[in-house]
Design a protein around this nucleic acid. Structure first.
Lengths: 249, 249
DNA sequence: TGAATAGTGTCTTTCAGACACTATCGG
DNA sequence: CCGATAGTGTCTGAAAGACACTATTCA
């Protein structure tokens, strides 16, 4: 039986080497009416080809011949979703022989953080080529964990990305990539609350953040709320990860 | 100029897809005469082909057509070094276009932990096919960080593996994979001291370890030293990493 | 003025580190 | 007995969490 030609599929597979693809899990912060807090959202694209035609999947594509892995991820992100991430880090390489029903594919998956404003562009900005693109949609991260209609093993990949994000947020340096250049400490607390999915004491959070993270105060304040205007802060540190590059400006 | 055939190298590259390889950084604990403590060592293999013929490199090879990534790493490890690791976790995928001088190679790198006794087998056991193999040698991890004659970007890869190991050791569950099934708390302390490269207070270490890690005591004691025999302990937890499998028995 | 959030003070508990002390082996 | 390591007790200082309190804005 071994080596039989009966199962053409298997025989073919042995000949051709595994294909390489690069995909990305993108996270952004958005208002969540259900909790009243900010929540984590992520965009998915609808597949336009077999296999899994019509189902939602992570944005991704083949590895360009001359791009580095991270460049390939960034380029593909721009092409498929119009997003330019503020942060891009390698997540994991998925290479299970059975993860694609057709030819074997090894996917190197990145995870990205985009700012709330950037994320809105894909929907509302007139300049965006993806305005009203029905093949890109945003989902609550918690919902995706439940959805079972994602292509390939993408549901599992998203689970893992969430796990990594939650384990990483403690290192600081994540929050400001989901926010703008300047931000209030309450906004940072919002990020932590969204990622960890629980409320935090404002007083203690403030103290810990000021003591630990590389955040420095500016002279500016944010007015407009019906309360005392909070001071704006700025991030001054850099990645602690030796293999990942700095924030993309 | 673009598309010119003059640079045959570049033209060829664009045609053929990147090759996939799987390599592994292996760590074991060994006595280190220099510090008097245990230290971290790792095996390298001498390259028998161009490029980098004759230079030391991480054990690795192409991805088998039907193996999962981790299976490919384990199989290759056995073939090239005779080692069967107790722990195997994906480290990172390296895909820089220029990391190989010939054809483009994307390497998915794992890191492994082996027990001290297992590691000695490659040198002394008569059953090992690799007895006296001049193409496998062990190096102090600290020395490798300095060596500049490694093939490809393997020096950088080892640096990163050490960084990950040092950042991971705090999560517990690492130590017992470098030791045997049963171990004394002083041995575990030895692992921490080797990895973190500093001495730790025995009393405080004991307390923290017992409180945090999933370690349970046995009824056995280790006699033979010229002092009170220490109790032997056993590990009872499991990986905290959702994508990596359990210890290989 | 009152609602709302910004921001501070302080008490308690928990935990890491320092280190003195007791226990028990081999020789 | 002594030398050596196992293992316990306890003090101190730093930091986390709870929560009362003051400050400042807009409506």
């Amino acid at each position: 039986m071994v080596g039989s030609v009966q199962f053409g599929n298997v025989a073919e597979r042995r000949e051709q080497p595994p294909a390489l693809a690069v995909s990305t899990v993108i996270f952004a912060l958005r208002d969540d009416d259900r909790t009243g807090r900010k929540g984590l959202w992520l965009p998915l694209v609808r597949r336009t080809r077999e296999p899994f035609l019509g189902q939602w999947a992570l944005p991704g594509g083949p590895l360009g011949a001359r791009d580095s892995l991270v460049d390939a991820a960034a380029a593909n992100l721009r092409d498929t979703t119009g997003l330019i991430p503020r942060y891009l880090e390698q997540l994991y390489a998925f290479g299970d022989p059975a993860r694609s029903p057709t030819r074997r594919v090894v996917s190197i998956v990145y995870w990205a953080l985009v700012r709330e404003n950037d994320a809105q562009h894909t929907e509302s900005a007139a300049t965006s080529v993806l305005l009203d693109d029905p093949n890109v949609a945003w989902f609550r991260a918690d919902d995706v964990e439940v959805m079972e209609h994602l292509a390939f093993d993408h549901s599992r990949i998203i689970d893992y990305a969430l796990w990594r994000l939650r384990n990483k947020v403690e290192y600081g340096s994540i929050a400001h990539r989901l926010l703008g250049e300047r931000f209030t400490l309450a906004q940072v607390r919002g990020v932590y609350e969204a990622v960890l999915n629980k409320s935090l004491d404002p007083a203690n959070f403030r103290r810990q953040l000021r003591a630990a993270a590389d955040i420095e105060e500016t002279d500016e304040f944010l007015s407009g709320g019906k309360h005392r205007p909070p001071r704006l802060y700025r991030y001054s540190g850099s990645t602690s990860h030796p293999l990942e590059s700095e924030t993309i400006s």
